[in-house]
């Protein structure tokens, strides 16, 4: 339900970032990394992005969302690595288990709750570029 506000936060962060150093061309793709613990509808996030960017220099750009597996650290045995998942299929049916794969203790999440813009794909002005 908070896709719109998160899309707006992404938009504000990107605009602030590009304010002093605008890209030479039209932004086509905005590459986003999303931790797999976050419950986000990609359809809703992309639609929110389309609406928010309308009439701005980012109009016409699309979000490309890459999922980041959950990484955990165990305070008991020191294990650090990817969380164990249960279930199969797409991300809605694969659930990260927040217990240590080695010793079963509750783990801390090192990575998996974040949402970040990492890169842009830009089309050069006056051509399709290469």
């Amino acid at each position: 339900m908070h896709e719109y506000s998160l899309a707006f936060s992404l938009f504000e962060a990107l605009r602030a970032r590009l304010a002093g150093d605008p890209p030479a061309g039209k932004v086509k793709l905005v590459h986003v990394r999303q931790g797999e613990l976050l419950s986000l509808s990609h359809e809703a996030l992309k639609e929110a992005w389309r609406i928010i960017t309308e009439g701005t220099e980012l109009s016409g750009s699309e979000l490309s969302i890459e999922l980041v597996p959950v990484r955990v650290r165990c305070p008991r045995c020191g294990f650090e690595g990817n969380a164990r998942y249960i279930g199969e299929g797409d991300r809605h049916f694969r659930i990260p288990v927040l217990s240590c794969p080695e010793c079963g203790a509750r783990v801390e999440v090192v990575e998996g709750r974040d949402l970040a813009i990492v890169a842009l794909t830009v089309e050069e002005e006056g051509g399709r570029g290469g």
């Binding site: 974040d114 970040a116 990492v118 890169a119 842009l120 794909t121 089309e123 050069e124």
Partner: peptide, 10 residues
């Protein structure tokens, strides 16, 4: 087309 790396701002 070219890519611009923006680092990682969560």
């Amino acid at each position: 087309m070219h890519e611009i790396n923006l680092g990682y701002e969560d």
